[in-house]
């Protein structure tokens, strides 16, 4: 299958531009394979981040035709024979070179919430055959989060506001409040009940659209808004 990859190029000290690479890959290939083909055969200076090739490390996130994708699980078939794929680095993160971004906005946000994903192999519980942990009415799927940062790239608020906690952090906070496991929940409430916390979200659901792994951060933020909002209103009227 013949494709053209129009890849964003940036090397420190030079102007950003696009280079187009014609590649020929099998029909079963994913976009990451096509990028590797270009790197293999045509230009060894193309820089891009990748490791596992099967959507579990979350390191290869980028934009294909301006939409957030994990190229390792995005089939080239989706774009058709002879298509030109415009490949850009993720939005809202500093670009180190070419497609490689400085991912610290992701990890700093996860650090703020206290890295709550510490359970083993919980994704297997989605079938409902095993009892849910205490405090959870439904399986929330936050454990699926790869920390790929595509939600931060897609979020329109992130585009102008670097103080925004972002979909990833807010979804993690929602998960944590649903099942705190000894975490200081007051600290979590203080973190998210802020102009640049849960209230800054404008419900465009771009994060949910971008998420490659059904974490549904947009929906989680809505549940978090409800939780924080009702708690504030109760406290205002003298409730505990």
């Amino acid at each position: 299958m013949k494709l053209n990859l129009k890849i964003y190029r940036y090397k420190p000290g030079s102007e950003p531009h696009y280079d187009t690479f014609p590649v020929d890959v099998p029909e079963t290939a994913n976009v990451l394979d096509a990028i590797e083909r270009a790197w293999d055969d045509l230009d060894r200076t193309i820089m891009f981040r990748h490791a596992c090739h099967h959507a579990s490390c979350g390191s290869c996130g980028l934009l294909v035709n301006d939409q957030e994708k994990l190229p390792c699980v995005t089939p080239v078939k989706d774009y058709g024979e002879g298509a030109t794929l415009k490949i850009d680095p993720m939005r809202n993160m500093p670009v180190i070179t070419d497609l490689a971004v400085d991912a610290s906005p992701i990890y700093q946000r996860m650090a703020l919430i206290g890295l709550p994903i510490i359970r083993d192999a919980e994704t297997l519980r989605a079938d409902g055959k095993e009892p849910l942990p205490e405090g959870l009415e439904a399986f929330r799927r936050f454990e699926n989060c790869l920390e790929c940062g595509l939600c931060l790239s897609a979020c329109p608020v992130m585009a102008t506001d670097p103080q925004f906690l972002g979909p990833l952090t807010l979804a993690a906070a929602e998960r944590l409040l649903a099942e705190p496991r000894g975490v200081d929940i007051e600290r979590i409430y203080r973190l998210v009940d802020d102009e640049h916390g849960v209230w800054r979200c404008h419900s465009s659901f771009e994060c949910t659209e971008a998420c490659p792994y059904e974490v549904y951060p947009g929906e989680a933020i809505m549940r978090l808004k409800r939780k924080v909002g009702l708690r504030k209103i109760k406290q205002f009227f003298g409730g505990a």
């Binding site: 940036y10 301006d66 670009v95 329109p156 608020v157 102008t160 670097p162 404008h202 659209e209």
Partner: peptide
């Protein structure tokens, strides 16, 4: 030196690749 994020005031109005929820916004 990484290329810093461009945060122009109208950056939210970047319509490229956006879906229906964004249009509602």
């Amino acid at each position: 030196k990484p290329k810093p994020v461009q945060r122009k005031p109208l950056e939210w109005f970047n319509l490229k690749g956006k879906r229906v929820g964004f249009w509602a916004y």
